[in-house]
């Protein structure tokens, strides 16, 4: 991989929430990593490890308790608009406007980004073509299937052709076919030079498409690097084994309990 300047920089991101049980919860604790253009960075970890919180801080949706993130050099809390223009954001929970059609929805987000009419129409046609959305592009989103909705959602995130993509569980609950479409798409976008941060529970998928991994556990990065580096670090071959070794081990060290993952 060519060594370019990182376009996403997460620097010591820490987020502390007060919890209903009384004390505070460190959802993220000094998380630092960089992602370069063309890289697909897999942010992996068990449930509640702090992946989503970290991604939300990078996207500027949450204010870090300390630390900061930079998107193409802009801090999303300080240069909100410029930073957010660099970003496509997609999660399992992001919804669609039920009473708009995918075409109208894409047009709306295109307008919000500030694209002019011609550019919008061209981009919408492009995305509909790429994501194979022709069949449902003029139906209301409320009536679409889960897979169709997720494709629309991906199209929305890609509308402004942003250099950075944050994808939090983009394949959750999708059938094999749509799963395939989404992964191919991520790979293609990576190949086109985008910096992609992918968070997923499907380790086999991650192993195939990500160039580099950050394993996060209990709010902390417990292992980082490409597959060979991680293999060397843990002596395991498969990503799932590496995951178990790192996350299980650290749990052992931290809590003295059994290493349960997922």
């Amino acid at each position: 991989m060519t060594e370019t300047e990182p376009i996403v920089q997460a620097h010591e991101l820490t987020k502390i929430f007060p919890t209903t049980e009384g004390d505070e919860k460190r959802a993220a604790d000094g998380v630092s990593f960089n992602v370069r253009p063309g890289e697909i960075y897999g942010l992996l970890g068990p449930n509640g490890a702090g992946k989503t919180t970290t991604l939300r801080m990078i996207a500027g949706l949450l204010t870090p308790t300390s630390g900061h993130a930079l998107l193409a050099g802009y801090d999303p809390r300080l240069d909100r608009e410029t930073a957010k223009r660099q970003l496509g954001y997609l999660t399992a929970s992001t919804g669609l406007y039920q009473r708009l059609t995918p075409r109208e929805l894409l047009n709306y987000f295109g307008e919000l980004i500030g694209m002019d009419r011609v550019a919008r129409l061209r981009r919408i046609d492009e995305l509909i073509e790429w994501l194979d959305m022709k069949a449902f592009s003029d139906l209301r989103c409320g009536g679409l299937s889960t897979g169709q909705k997720q494709r629309t959602n991906i199209a929305r995130a890609l509308m402004g052709d942003p250099p950075i993509l944050i994808m939090d569980e983009p394949t959750l609950g999708l059938d094999v076919l749509t799963n395939r479409v989404v992964l191919d798409f991520i790979r293609a976008e990576g190949a086109r030079g985008k910096a992609i941060i992918l968070s997923t529970h499907y380790l086999d998928d991650a192993e195939v498409i990500c160039n580099r991994f950050g394993l996060i556990h209990d709010g902390r990065i417990v292992g980082e690097g490409d597959l060979p580096t991680l293999r060397e670090q843990t002596g395991k071959r498969r990503l799932s084994e590496i995951f178990l070794a790192l996350c299980g081990e650290s749990e052992h060290v931290l809590e003295g309990g059994e290493g349960v993952v997922r």
Binding site: G95, Y97, L112
Partner: peptide
Amino acid sequence: ERGTLETLAVSPVP
């Protein structure tokens, strides 16, 4: 409730 607020919040609009 429908999760569209998040998409609006990441769009570059004040």
